[in-house]
């Protein structure tokens, strides 16, 4: 099953050449974003906008280091964060130096709070275990927007629908790796089967520790920070070297849907109590 033009071409899928991965429905695909390899070139942002035909947003300088994109949003599905830390050192580690850079993206959470919130079924889980908004179904209720613990989904004022990273659903269907991962010149963004990526990330972590880095850790892998509070794992996960907050990531996010039960129980108890009080007061008697 390759379900696409490119995939059915002789010689196999392009993703096998560019990412070393065969794309098949039924397996989980995601990103491993290794921030120690990021050089802040923003090729991912550009490739994403080009492939997905996304319009430019506020063109200007934010004053926040080299981050002039600012945020993920309806038209920005990859966003490189820049944080300059400390003073300029004379002896710098061989990567990132005093600069924290991370290419942020939709986490394609499992379970996904946006999907759990969506009342129309516009948000759904694809055969590649990614989370996508169906544009022909979304009615712009906007409930997915505050549901997302990472501030990823947004409504576009232009068309009144929710938009976010699709993990290049169309490319996956055609046997191509996502545009951002293919464009990344340092392999900071790696695309693949999530289980294999977690394994690869573990090996990378070990190598970094051997090199004396006591600050490297995974964010969003099963059991790691980011995969907390009922979130089993983030299919797009990260290797970080500082506190999550410095990359604008919550250290221990949780599934917002878990708050519904206590609210409903306490609310109904209140209504029953007040109804009984109404009986005692004699409401309804002339």
């Amino acid at each position: 099953m390759d379900g696409g033009l490119v995939g059915s071409a002789p010689g196999g899928q392009e993703a096998e050449l560019t990412a070393g991965t065969r794309i098949e429905p039924g397996r989980s695909y995601g990103f491993f974003t290794d921030t120690t390899l990021c050089i802040g070139c923003k090729a991912c942002e550009v490739a994403c906008k080009e492939w997905n035909n996304l319009p430019a947003e506020d063109v200007g300088l934010t004053g926040h280091s080299y981050d002039n994109t600012g945020r993920l949003g309806a038209h920005t599905w990859r966003h490189v964060t820049f944080l300059e830390t400390g003073t300029r050192a004379t002896e710098m580690p061989p990567y990132q130096s005093n600069w924290l850079m991370m290419s942020d993206v939709c986490k394609h959470c499992d379970p996904a709070p946006c999907l759990e919130a969506c009342p129309t079924g516009a948000l759904f889980r694809t055969e590649f275990d990614t989370v996508v908004v169906q544009q022909d179904i979304c009615n712009g209720c906007g409930y997915c927007v505050p549901a997302c613990p990472f501030g990823v989904v947004e409504l576009a004022p232009e068309d009144g629908k929710a938009h976010k990273c699709t993990l290049c659903y169309d490319r996956l269907k055609g046997g191509l790796e996502p545009a951002c991962a293919k464009a990344c010149p340092t392999d900071s963004i790696q695309f693949g089967v999530v289980e294999e990526l977690v394994e690869r990330a573990g090996a990378r972590l070990e190598r970094l520790r051997e090199q004396g880095r006591a600050d490297a850790y995974l964010y969003g892998a099963p059991g790691a920070p980011g995969a907390t509070g009922g979130l089993r794992r983030l299919n797009a996960f990260f290797l970080l070297t500082d506190r999550p907050e410095r990359y604008n990531l919550p250290p221990a996010p949780s599934r917002p849907a878990r708050n519904a039960r206590p609210a409903f129980l306490s609310g109904l108890a209140t209504m029953v109590g007040l109804a009984l009080a109404a009986v005692a007061i004699g409401v309804g008697r002339r």
């Binding site: 926040h64 945020r71 613990p149 990472f150 410095r246 990359y247």
Partner: peptide
């Protein structure tokens, strides 16, 4: 992160 919002 530069005082920027996390959630929307």
């Amino acid at each position: 992160y530069h005082g920027r919002p996390v959630t929307k």
